[in-house]
Structures are given as C-alpha cells and as structure tokens.
C-alpha cells in the first residue's frame, strides 16, 4: 500500500496546525470559515507527537490579517500557522493575544449588561501570562480559558 497524504497539498492559502481537537469548531466559527466559498480541508483526530491528537485546517486561497489570526489566541494559543504560496511555505506565524477582545467572547457574568442587551462585548486583557481578562462593562475579572465564544 502506498503512502498518501490524507488531505491534498495547498497551492495557495493558510494552514492552521496544532489545533486542540475540541477547539476545531471554535476555530471555524471565529474565522467564519463556514462562510467561505474556497476549499476548506479539516483534519480531525490526527496523530501528533506533541499533543497526542490534533486538528489541522487548510484553507485554500485565503490569507488572514494578523488581527483575524490573533483572535485564535483566545481559544487555541499554541496553534502554528503557515502561509502557503505556490506550494511553498513562505511564512510561519504564531498567534499573540491582543490587548483587547472585541465581540469575540461572552461575559461569564449573567448579570452583565452585555448578556441582556443586543450589543457587543469588550474585554481588556489584565494579565497575558495568567490569561485573565476584565469585562469593560461589568468589570468582572475572568479566565480566558473559561470564556465562551459569542
């Protein structure tokens, strides 16, 4: 039996590797991949030396800006990104937590105005290292890990 790639190589586009499997759907939601018309290949439960199991997403003919990609730091801070042009990896990137999260996650406080009004959310990152954020509106501090996507 010949060895073949499970998913075909990209000519141009973005590869998101080392996604924790349980965060795969969140990556799709955050980057709005379900709204794209180009090819999106999702590999789930792939073997990984580093992580045991991981997911990979390959997005054809799509390049994201840093602000879009840095949103991933909320749900999957250890993903690695490869930018592919003409079958070559032209750039590798890591994601970095932004200073402010705008309309990405929900506030954990049920009595926060943002959970009771059709409006955006804003969080200020208090501590990048311990991953703590504070709601701009109700001022409650919360762990980024516990946050649910909007």
């Amino acid at each position: 039996m010949t060895k073949t790639l499970l998913v075909s190589a990209l000519e141009n586009g973005t590869v998101i590797d080392h996604i924790p499997c349980d965060r795969t759907n969140d990556v799709i939601t955050l980057l709005k991949l379900n709204q794209l018309t180009s090819t999106v290949m999702i590999g789930y439960n792939l073997e990984s030396k580093k992580m045991g199991k991981k997911s990979i997403i390959k997005i054809a003919n799509k390049f994201f800006n840093d602000a879009e990609l840095n949103q991933l730091a909320v749900i999957a801070p250890d993903v690695s990104l490869s930018i592919i042009r003409n079958y070559e990896v032209t750039e590798k990137k890591r994601v970095e937590l932004p200073e402010e999260l705008r309309d990405i996650v929900k506030c954990a406080n049920p009595k926060c105005i943002t959970n009771n009004e059709p409006m955006h959310t804003i969080f200020h990152i208090i501590d990048k290292h311990s991953r703590v954020m504070r709601c701009h509106y109700c001022e409650k501090e919360q762990r980024i890990e516990d946050a649910k996507l909007k």
């Binding site: 406080n109 009595k111 105005i113 509106y137 109700c138 001022e139």
Partner: peptide
C-alpha cells in the same frame, strides 16, 4: 439591576 448598564 444589570452591571455595566450605566457605562453602556
């Protein structure tokens, strides 16, 4: 009664 209402 909601927190953050005045700021919003």
């Amino acid at each position: 009664y909601l927190e953050g209402a005045a700021l919003y």
